[in-house]
Simulated scan of single mutants.
Amino acid sequence: MCNSTTNSTTNNCKEDILQGLAYSAVFLLGFLVNAAALRAFIAKRDPWTDTHIYMLNLVIADTVLILFIPLRIYDAFYCLHPNEFCTFLIFLHYINMYVSIMITTAISVHRYLVIRFPLQARSWRKKKETACAVCLVFWGLLVTICAIFRENNDPKKLWKCYERCKDNQLDPKLIVILVSLGFLAPLLIIVFCSSHIICILLKVGDKSEEKKSTIGIVTANMIVFIVCYTPIHIAFIVNYFEKVPENWQSKYLPAHVYLLVAEWIASTNCCFDSIGYYFLLKQFYF
């Protein structure tokens, strides 16, 4: 149960103007780039490939996250009272974030296999069906995990609509799942696939601008993934081990401030996904 009081919550709401402005910037930029990406998919007339299916799911995940950011902005300025809807918003945010992580990983694996085994890739069958199945598994798995650990974000454990009570830590089993399976495993796969793609392309004698552009985009996507998602997973661990003083409601704990900043950094990824993978798709025609 939260130890904070209504007055302390109200006072802290007044100090969240910066957070509201930060998420406003993410919303404006993210809305524009994801709307453009969705429009491109709607207007597409060429036959769909498995890559398009992965990218569409990525855009959907990012768009859903973007569409609910205005509620977080409203909460920063006016404070939404913690309730069941807040629990839904928190899980929706994390479902879409981790779907984005998983699909980004799937795209990296797909790209690596196509470049590493080009002849075999052309003979693969049911690629689109496989892509659809993979995406459905990702969505279903994350919804299931949220259902299992629903109590972690019960309204009674929320300090504000988007913030947990500092004296109620996440279930350590959930932290292990999020950090190991939700971040470290995808990170290792993306770094492996991206570095091998770059090495393979560098060995090709072709010095065209297309090859240089592709290497640049693959490198940029890998760096963006690391920069956007590393801080928040470090924050999960740091917050779990931080000691909470008795009068925590009157203080901004360093680890908690870091978590808020890390969450914002992670949310900016929805602005980069559509841009990066749109140009990457332009380089290949599989």
Rank of each mutant, 00 (worst) to 15 (best):
I190P: 00
C193S: 05
I95S: 01
K14C: 12
V26T: 09
C199H: 15
N152A: 08
I90L: 06
N34D: 09
C79T: 05
L38D: 10
L56I: 10
C161A: 02
H52I: 04
K127M: 12
K282A: 15
L89K: 00
D75R: 02
I145R: 00
C199F: 14
V179A: 08
R150V: 13
G205T: 06
E163H: 11
V59G: 01
Y94C: 06
K44T: 09
L280G: 07
C146Q: 04
F41E: 13
N3D: 15
D46N: 10
F31T: 09
C193V: 05
K44P: 01
N57V: 02
Y278V: 05
S250A: 15
V59P: 01
L253S: 04
D206R: 10
C79Y: 01
F286K: 10
L187R: 03
P82R: 00
N12Q: 14
E246G: 09
D75N: 02
L280K: 07
V59K: 01
I197V: 12
Y252W: 15
P245N: 05
I103G: 03
R45P: 08
L253P: 05
R116C: 12
L18D: 14
P155N: 09
P186L: 03
K211V: 08
E84W: 13
I190E: 05
I90R: 00
D154C: 06
A25D: 10
A76D: 04
L18H: 08
R164I: 09
T63G: 03
Y258C: 04
F85V: 07
W48H: 10
L21D: 14
I66C: 04
T105H: 05
V143K: 07
K157Q: 13
V238K: 07
L21H: 08
N221V: 04
R111I: 05
T104M: 05
E163P: 03
I101R: 02
A76P: 01
N168A: 14
I234T: 04
E210I: 15
R125C: 10
L142T: 10
I223W: 11
F183N: 06
I42Q: 13
E209W: 04
V134G: 07
W248D: 07
V227R: 06
E129I: 11
V26R: 04
I17A: 15
F225E: 02
A185Q: 08
E15T: 12
S8K: 07
V227K: 03
W139C: 11
I275R: 02
G205Q: 04
L28S: 07
L32W: 14
A220Q: 09
Y23D: 09
F41M: 10
